[in-house]
Amino acid sequence: MSPEYAVDGIFSVKSDVFSFGVLLLEIVSGKRNRGFSHRDHHHNLLGHAWMRYKEGRSLELIDDYLGISGYLSEVLRSIHIGLLCVQQSPEDRPSMSLVVLMFGNEGVLPQARQPGFFTERDLFTAESSSSTNAESSTNQMTITLMEAR
Rank of each mutant, 00 (worst) to 15 (best):
L66G: 02
I62H: 03
L45I: 07
S19N: 07
E120R: 14
S19A: 13
G107W: 04
M146S: 11
L109Y: 07
R57W: 06
P115M: 06
L123S: 05
R32T: 13
S78I: 03
P115I: 02
C85D: 00
V13D: 10
H43V: 01
R57Y: 07
A49F: 05
F103N: 01
V22D: 00
D40S: 13
E91D: 13
F20S: 03
S95V: 04
R52M: 15
G104H: 10
A126N: 08
L98H: 02
N133F: 10
T144E: 14
F20M: 05
T119A: 11
D8W: 14
G9L: 08
M141C: 06
S129Y: 09
G21M: 01
F11L: 15
Q111M: 14
P94N: 06
S137C: 09
G70L: 09
A148P: 05
Y53S: 10
S137G: 06
V17K: 00
A49M: 05
G30L: 01
N33P: 02
F103M: 14
Q88P: 02
L83G: 01
H80T: 05
A148E: 14
G56R: 07
Q140A: 12
L84S: 02
R121L: 13
L145A: 10
E74I: 04
G70V: 05
E127P: 01
A134D: 07
S97V: 14
Y71D: 11
R39A: 13
S89R: 12
F124D: 12
D122C: 05
T125F: 09
S97H: 06
P115V: 08
G47C: 05
Y65I: 02
L25E: 03
F20P: 03
R34T: 15
I68Y: 04
T125L: 11
I10S: 05
E106V: 02
K54P: 00
E147C: 09
Q87R: 06
P115S: 06
G107I: 03
V99G: 01
V75H: 06
S58F: 04
E55F: 03
E120C: 09
I10Y: 10
D16Q: 07
G82N: 03
T142C: 10
S95T: 13
V100C: 08
I81E: 01
L25C: 08
F36E: 04
V86T: 15
E26V: 08
D8R: 15
P110N: 12
I143E: 09
S137L: 13
D122V: 01
T119L: 15
S2N: 11
L25V: 07
F20T: 03
F117W: 07
V99W: 03
N133H: 12
L46C: 09
H41D: 15
S130A: 13
G35F: 05
A148K: 14
S97I: 14
L61T: 11
V28P: 01
I68V: 13
L25R: 06
E127I: 12
D16L: 11
T142N: 13
P94K: 05
S129G: 01
Q114A: 14
F124A: 11
Q114W: 04
L46N: 08
E135Y: 09
E147G: 04
I62M: 07
M141D: 09
L45G: 07
T144R: 12
F103Q: 02
M141S: 10
L123V: 10
M102S: 03
P3V: 08
G67M: 04
P94F: 04
R34P: 00
F124Y: 06
H43Q: 13
F124C: 01
S69W: 06
M146Y: 15
S15G: 08
S136I: 11
